[in-house]
Design a protein around this nucleic acid. Structure first.
Lengths: 343, 343
DNA sequence: TTTCTCTGCACAAACGTTTGCGCTATCTTT
DNA sequence: AAAGATAGCGCAAACGTTTGTGCAGAGAAA
C-alpha cells in the first residue's frame, strides 16, 4: 500500500517533457501549447496528482497558513468567530492554525513563537485576559508577519484591530428598558480596568441623560465577573435606596449568575426584576429564565472582518504597510429575546 | 523592516564552516567537535536563528502536523477534546490543523481532501452525523495517512478508534436511581439507527433485570433528539400506565428540553420527577433545574487517547501497520451533581 | 533569401535543511 | 616506522516546485 504520491517529475518523464512544462501546463500558463496542456492535465488526473503543498510552501517562502490565537475555543463567542475565519480562509485557499491560550500569558507567548517557526503568513489574535506585556506581538511585526487583533485589543499603538462598539449597544439596551417603562435601571459592570467597562458606563450615562433623567452613580456597580462578585453586586443593587426594576449585566455568564442568585432570593423574575445582557449565548435557549434582551456583538462578523483585513495586508505585503493601520468598529445591536416569557 | 530570518547558510558563511556542520552542531550531533558546536550555537542564538519549518517539513517529507476534523467546535464536548489533543501534540512538537465539518458530509469530504494536500501526517476524526459514505477515509489510508476515529465511529472494518462504553454508564445511572428509591424509571433514548442508542437500551435492561425487576418496554421511548421530539417522548412517558418518577435522557440538550417541558407542565422537579443525563455539559452550572446526575464521557481523555494512538502509529510507520487495529473503549462514569437541589 | 517575431518548450537555479559518504589530520597500536 | 583507528569536518545530493532565461523552429515581413 502506501503509494507514494505522484510528482510533477514523474508526469514529465512519462510524457517526455520537462518538469517546467508540466508545472506551467497545470497552471494554464499561456506559453504552453494547448495540446501539451491537455495531455498533461489528463495524465495528472489519471495519476491522481496532487501538488505537494510542503514543497510549494517552501518554494514560495510562504505557507498559505494563517495563525489564530484565542483564549478559549469552548466559548461560543470565539467558536463562532473561528467558523467565520475558517470559511473565508478556505475560500482563499488558506489554512488556519488554531491555538488556545487558555487566557495564559506564558502560553500565549509560546504559541506566538510556534506560529513564527511555522512561518504563518499572518496572525489573528484575541489576547489573553492576563496578558500585560505585549512585546511578543511586536517581534512578529519585525519579522514581517502582520497581526490583526479582534475583540480583545491590546492597548498599544499601531495595530490593526476589529472590535465592537459597546457604547451604542448599551445605549440601545438602556433605551429599550426605558421604553418598556422602567425608570430605575441598575448596571452590573465589569472591572474598571477593562476598556469595555468604560464604554458600557458611558453608554448607560448617555441613554439616561438623553432621556432627561438624572444619572445616579449608585446604580452602576463594578464587579470582578466571578459568580461571587456578581452576587455581591446584585445584593448591593437590591439594597440601594432606589431599588432597580431592571439590570444590565456585563455579559451572559454574569447575567446567569445574577438570575440564579435572584431566584434564590425569591425574587419574581417575571414581574419585579428584568435583566438585559450582552453576547446572546446559545445556551440562553436552554434556560428557564433568561435576559429579556441581549446586546449582540456579532462574533462571526468580527472574525470575518479580521480575516478580510489580514488577507488585504497579505496581498499588499510588498508596499510598506506601516503607513496605514486598520481599525474597524462594529456596531453592536440589541436583540430582544423572543423566548421572553410573557406571562 | 521585515528582516529576513537567519538561515543555516549564513551562520556557516560567518564561521567558515559548512552548512552540514552547522546543521549537525545545532542538533548536538556527536561527530561535531565541542568547540565548533558551541561556536555555532552561540552565533545562532545571537542571530536569532529559527529553523525554517517549511524547509524541514519539505525535506523530511512529513509535516509534523496532524489534522483534526470534528463536527462543531462550539460543542463543549469537542472543544475539550481539542484542548487535550492540542496539549499532547504540543509536547511532541506537532501542530494541529483543526477543521469543522458542521455535520455536513460534503464539507467533510472537502476537508479530507485539503488535509491530504497539506500532507498532514495523520488524522483524528469524529465523523459528521450525516455521513453515510466512508470512501474518502479509505482513500487516505491508501496514501499512508493513518486515521484515528473518536466518539463518532463509522461502521466500517479495520479502523483505529476510541469511544466510550455507554452500556456501563447507563447501568450505573439506572442503578443509582434504583438505589435512591425509584422503582419506575423511564428512558428517552435516541433514534434506533444510532449504535449509542442500542448500548443505552442494553444498559437499561441490564440494570433493571440485575436488580430483579422486570423490564417494561413501554418505559423506553425513542426520539429524534429535537426539542419537539423530546417533548413528545416526555408526554408519552408521563401518560404511561406506570408513570416514571425518574427519566434517563440521551444527552444533556435532550435533558434540558425535557426539563423545560416538564416545568411548563407544572411538574414539581424537586419531588415528582428526576432526570439523569449524559455528557455533563458546563452549561449545567448555569441552570436552575439540572439533571441530578450525568454520565460523564471524558472527552478530554478520549481526545488524548486518540492522539496517543495516532502518535504511536506515526512512530511505527515503517512497519506495515495494517496488522493491528487499535480499539480503545473508555468506561463512562456516573457523576452525581453536587449542585443538586436538596430542598 | 534574409531578418524578425512569435510560439512552445527545455534548462537550471533557487528555496533551507538533512544526511550518507568521503576525506584529512591526529592518535593509537604494533 | 608503518599500519590502522578515530575524531572532526566538508561535499553534494535530495526533497518538489516555481520561474527567469535561453533556444529552436515556424511563420511573417522585408
Amino acid at each position: 500500500m502506501s503509494n507514494k504520491p505522484t510528482t510533477i517529475k514523474e508526469i514529465a518523464a512519462i510524457l517526455n517533457v520537462s518538469v517546467s512544462t508540466v508545472s506551467r501546463a497545470l497552471h494554464n500558463h499561456p506559453s504552453i501549447g494547448i495540446t501539451t496542456q491537455q495531455k498533461v492535465q489528463k495524465l495528472a488526473k489519471e495519476l491522481n496528482y496532487e501538488p505537494n503543498q510542503s514543497a510549494i510552501f517552501f518554494q514560495k517562502g510562504k505557507t498559505s497558513t494563517i495563525g489564530l490565537i484565542l483564549p478559549e475555543l469552548s466559548e461560543a463567542f470565539f467558536s463562532s468567530a473561528v467558523s467565520a475565519i475558517e470559511d473565508l480562509a478556505y475560500q482563499k485557499n488558506y489554512t488556519v492554525l488554531i491555538a488556545q491560550s487558555h487566557d495564559d500569558e506564558q502560553r500565549e507567548k509560546q504559541l506566538i513563537e510556534m506560529m513564527k517557526n511555522h512561518r504563518v503568513d499572518g496572525l489573528i489574535v484575541s489576547v489573553a485576559k492576563t496578558t500585560s506585556n505585549f512585546d511578543h506581538f511586536e517581534v512578529l511585526e519585525r519579522y514581517g508577519i502582520p497581526i490583526v487583533f479582534f475583540d480583545r485589543i491590546p492597548p498599544i499603538k499601531n495595530i490593526h484591530s476589529v472590535a465592537c462598539n459597546m457604547e451604542t449597544g448599551t445605549i440601545a439596551a438602556v433605551t429599550y428598558l426605558l421604553q418598556i417603562g422602567h425608570r430605575c435601571i441598575g448596571m452590573i459592570n465589569g472591572p474598571a480596568t477593562l476598556a469595555a467597562s468604560e464604554e458600557r458606563k458611558k453608554g448607560y450615562f448617555e441613554a439616561i441623560t438623553k432621556n432627561r433623567l438624572k444619572f445616579d452613580g449608585s446604580l452602576v456597580v463594578s464587579c470582578d465577573l466571578t459568580e461571587k462578585g456578581t452576587q455581591e453586586a446584585l445584593d448591593k443593587l437590591l439594597s440601594n435606596k432606589r431599588r432597580p426594576t431592571a439590570i444590565v449585566t456585563f455579559n451572559d455568564y454574569n447575567a446567569l449568575y445574577a438570575i440564579k442568585h435572584a431566584r434564590k432570593l425569591n425574587i419574581n423574575l417575571d414581574k419585579d426584576l428584568k435583566f438585559v445582557s450582552y453576547a446572546n449565548l446559545p445556551l440562553i435557549n436552554y434556560m428557564d429564565y433568561v435576559p429579556i434582551a441581549s446586546v449582540e456583538q456579532f462574533p462571526a462578523l468580527q472574525g470575518q472582518k479580521a480575516a478580510e483585513i489580514l488577507f488585504e495586508l497579505l496581498k499588499n505585503k510588498t508596499t510598506s504597510s506601516d503607513i496605514f493601520y486598520h481599525k474597524v468598529t462594529i456596531e453592536s445591536e440589541l436583540i430582544v429575546n423572543q423566548l421572553n416569557r410573557q406571562e
